[in-house]
Simulated assay, not measured.
Amino acid sequence: MPPKTQLDRLAIGMMVLFCTIWGVQQVAIKLANAGISPVWQAGLRSIGAALLVLAWAVGRRVRLFEADGSLPGGVLAGLLFAAEFALIFIGLQYTSASRGVIFLYTAPFFVALGAVWLLPHEHMRRTQWAGMALAFCGVLVLFGENLLGAAGEAWKGDLLIFCSAFFWAATTLTVKASALNRVSAEKTLLYQLVVSALILPPLALLMGEPGIFAPSPLVWASLAFQIVVVASASYLGWFWLVRQYPATRLSSFSFLTPVMGVLAGGVLLGEPLTPAVFAALGLVGSGIWIANRPPRRR
């Protein structure tokens, strides 16, 4: 399947589905935090997903070990992937989740800036920048009030999560600009899962995390959802999309994730759904439409 320059219905539908899954993941992480410490949770997720993706790839006879020049990019992507999640979980020890969302979802702007040098064929037009800015305004409408009145060491967490957004964008750009863009989505994902599975558990030990301290059926179910649905199925689909479609256009959809997370919290956890949630959804949806609207033919 040759790479495309615009998002079609398949890509749009997959991205809406994945953003919904990633939004629900926020609820699953909260539920699993009640019994498994955060970085341990991320490490266990990577270990479980690596085994599942490996079994899937072997069953489909995907070539994983041939010399295709992808090793340097794969190791780099794995290190960036591990750094992203480590910084998120460490940062959340200092700042609130709502503040963290604002800084994390600066990542699409880093992708767009990096694409100027690394992906010159994905030229960003003014309307695309405007659409991304409008979508980000939707995130600010949803969480912006939490930027005010920060106290203590919240700035440390904000800075760490802002850095994690850079690593998230760098992972996407590495996949798109390196030899990983020519290998299977299974191999691309396995690089990241295996490297993070080797890094995150030792990091959790160094941080003195308790690990699994209060297991329950709900905690295990939440972790299983992250392993099977999020880190295996949705990430496989995401990296397939990154190979086939412009990274800048795909990244604009990520602004949907925090809105979907709040909606999921309202449906699954009974959290309040204020008018700001639906205003944010409208702004994000409008921004994504503007950012992905095809250029007018002259």
Rank of each mutant, 00 (worst) to 15 (best):
P3S: 06
D8F: 03
R9L: 15
V16F: 05
G23Y: 09
N33K: 02
I36K: 02
S46Q: 10
G48Y: 07
G48L: 12
G48D: 07
G48F: 10
A57S: 13
A57E: 09
G59C: 09
L64H: 10
F65C: 06
P72E: 10
V75L: 11
A77H: 04
L80F: 06
L80G: 07
A83G: 14
E84R: 12
G91A: 08
L92N: 13
S96E: 07
S98H: 13
I102P: 09
I102C: 09
L104V: 01
Y105M: 09
Y105Q: 01
P108M: 05
A112Q: 05
A115Y: 11
L119K: 06
H123P: 00
R125A: 14
R125M: 10
R126D: 11
Q128M: 14
Q128Y: 03
W129P: 01
A130H: 06
A133T: 13
F136A: 01
G138I: 00
G144D: 02
G144N: 02
A150M: 15
E153L: 12
A154F: 06
W155T: 00
L159A: 15
L159V: 15
I161L: 01
A169P: 00
V175L: 13
A179G: 07
V183Y: 13
E186M: 06
L190C: 04
Y191F: 15
L193V: 07
V194H: 10
V195D: 10
L198N: 11
P202D: 01
L205K: 14
E209L: 05
E209P: 09
P210A: 15
P210R: 15
P210L: 13
I212Y: 05
A214C: 08
L218H: 12
W220E: 04
F225G: 05
I227F: 09
I227W: 07
G237F: 04
W238G: 08
W238F: 14
F239A: 02
F239E: 04
P246N: 01
L250G: 02
S251W: 02
S252D: 08
S252P: 00
G261E: 12
V267Q: 04
V277K: 03
A280L: 09
G282M: 03
L283P: 02
V284M: 04
G285C: 04
N292H: 02
P294W: 03
P295G: 03
P295K: 03
R296W: 14
